[in-house]
């Protein structure tokens, strides 16, 4: 892959031998390697936002518009009220819980800056389709999450200019790491009273079984070619919903549900997966929300779902 480059390096080394050696550590730069980044190239990738609002694009979004977007794009994992489904992170609640035995670290109770919320939604959410939201949508969803945390009113409109002025309740409670914070001594003898040692044992039965993992190989042998091809697509594009059942998605291992679906014919099931489908229990977005998949990839993934145990 780098053969041309290797050739160039060889040429460069040969040239070095012939020239007097004048280099020292100090004048090692610049070496003239790399291509100037144009403003357009930088603008396309420079997505980060800081607490002072630097980096925010022009735009705005209201709590009202955010509600609809949130319910469609976020609620399946984070819950209708930001309470979090299953193991997915809660976004709201937890006020004054940080000193409690089970603190709830949410946007409202823990996050120090509003900009972090905008930045994270913009760069990484929704989880199955990162960087699919337009700036106005990010403003609206951010506004709605702030509303869920009682930080703005229901008629609030978040904009490029007012975002940095919204202070988060927990901002002042962060400080820079001040470790080392312990001062153990290298005691060698009589370091404690042996009669006062209390042994605490582990909770039983929560350590994963370390011999279950071998089953994957056996599974691969029984799959069709299409299903083997579909497994990778399933893992990256379908698993988030179909392993956990969020958004009402039928779970991979629920054979009865799939059997019922297949009664309408596999072509219909594949077609629903490609074009999207609204059922009694939930919504299947086109191609699971990953529109970069080819129809064949979706078909293979369906085949995998059918065959997987």
């Amino acid at each position: 892959m780098y053969s041309l480059n290797r050739l160039l390096i060889t040429v460069a080394l040969t040239a070095t031998v012939l020239l007097p050696v004048t280099s020292s550590a100090k004048d090692s730069a610049p070496l003239g390697i790399g291509t100037p980044a144009t403003n357009a190239e930088i603008a396309g990738w420079d997505i980060d936002v800081r607490p002072d609002g630097k980096g925010l694009p022009k735009g705005q979004g209201s709590v009202a518009i955010g509600e609809g977007l949130y319910e469609a794009q976020c609620a399946s994992c984070h819950g209708l009220f930001g309470e979090g489904e299953g193991r997915w992170p809660p976004l709201a609640g937890g006020e004054n819980s940080l000193t409690e035995d089970r603190p709830e670290k949410t946007v409202g109770s823990y996050w120090p800056y509003t900009s972090t919320l905008w930045d994270y939604i913009n760069r990484a959410m929704p989880f199955p389709a990162p960087q699919s939201l337009k700036p106005d949508e990010v403003y609206a969803i951010t506004a709605y999450v702030l509303y869920l945390n009682d930080l703005v009113e229901d008629d609030f409109v978040l904009t490029q200019t007012n975002l940095a002025s919204i202070k988060m309740p927990n901002e002042e409670n962060f400080y820079i790491d001040n470790r080392p914070d312990t001062d153990n001594k290298r005691c060698m003898k009589n370091c404690k009273d042996p009669s006062k040692i209390i042994v605490v044992e582990s909770l039983r039965g929560i350590t994963p079984d370390q011999e279950e993992d071998a089953s994957e190989e056996a599974e691969a042998e029984s799959l069709s070619e299409s299903a083997i091809a579909g497994k990778a697509t399933y893992t990256t594009s379908c698993l988030v919903c179909h392993d956990s059942g969020v958004t009402g998605a039928p779970v991979l291992s629920d054979k009865d549900t799939w059997k019922k679906r297949l009664e309408q014919g596999i072509d219909t099931v594949v077609q629903h997966a490609i074009t999207g489908f609204v059922g009694d229990n939930g919504v299947m977005p086109p191609k699971g929300g990953n529109l970069s998949l080819t129809d064949q990839q979706v078909k293979d993934a369906v085949q995998y779902i059918i065959e997987a145990e």
């Binding site: 980060d48 936002v49 800081r50 607490p51 002072d52 940080l98 000193t99 603190p103 670290k105 946007v107 823990y110 996050w111 120090p112 800056y113 900009s115 972090t116 930045d119 994270y120 990484a124 409670n173 962060f174 400080y175 820079i176 790491d177 001040n178 470790r179 080392p180």
Partner: peptide, 30 residues
């Protein structure tokens, strides 16, 4: 000229202490 305070250095990878305050930028593995 300043840190960005992104999600993985505020919401996550910060250390909640008993007094309810939190350490941030705790980089070193002791």
């Amino acid at each position: 000229d300043k840190p960005w305070h992104h999600r993985e250095e505020t919401s996550k990878y910060t250390d909640l202490m008993p007094d309810g305050r939190s350490r941030r930028f705790s980089y070193e593995q002791e």
